[in-house]
Amino acid sequence: MSVTSTTPGTARAAAATRSGPTFVRLLAAEWTKLTSLRSPWWVAGVTVAVAAAITYLSAQASSGDPGFQPFDSLSSGLVLAQVGPLVLGVLAGAGEYRTGAFRTTFTLVPRRWPVLAAQTLVVAAFALGLGVLATVACVLGVLPAAASRDIPLDLTAGETPAVLLAMTLFVVGLALLGFALGVILRRTVPAMVTALVVVLLLPVMLTLAGEMASEPADPASFSSTGEGPGPITVPGMLLTFSPGGAAQEMTVPASYQPVAGSPDMSPLGGGLVLGGWVLVLLAATGVRLRTRDVR
């Protein structure tokens, strides 16, 4: 291998700009770090493909129903494809710690928390691109079924634009939730398991518990509420304010009835709850980075 020693000339060239980290520089560095790995691209590709495939199959399956509405099938692909942004976030968040790369990162930026902020924005930006592509994939997945029934899919009508926007932000929100779990747990597998339990398992369990709790045990109360939403139950509250339940709330059109026992929450409200969870986890991580050793 060729061996050369430092030349004073180049040393001086580098010395010309001897300024330290700025937030814009950290954004550039973190973008390079995220996009120079293979996993984000793989996850993004698979997510878009799964979103398109599931939406297509779901729309095809229900296109035979008399009351088929392509619009209803729009977000069906995200039920499974939501794992994608979670994995993306967990890998981005825990990756640094799992591999030891954080030592390099934090020796370059001893204040540490600007790195966390830059990583959060970079993951959000990447996930925003992924969210747009996944939403487009879902629309494309619905088209064949809509065409087979001659039902035009008007993306600008009614609640459709809001749902499309919500689907995109849903992907961003889940990626950030995965990222926040990744940076706080620092290991890929525990963070992944936690993310899947919180986002996939917990809402199902709470929904079932909510339905059981809101069953009309007392006929009098049932008749008094009539057709309106039932009384709000503890599992229903937990569902609404859990990160997974809040995320699901985002893609449900505002006009739909809430899950039994849950308070009625708009997609915006769901997004805010999810955003709150992400902020709390990131704030805890930031405090820990400031006050504790990184080893």
Binding site: S19, T22, K33, S36, V109
Partner: peptide, 16 residues
């Protein structure tokens, strides 16, 4: 998972 060049580039970018 990062190439040597990208690793060094990301380091360099933090300081412009």
């Amino acid at each position: 998972g990062r190439t040597a060049y990208k690793h060094l580039l990301a380091m360099a970018q933090t300081h412009g």
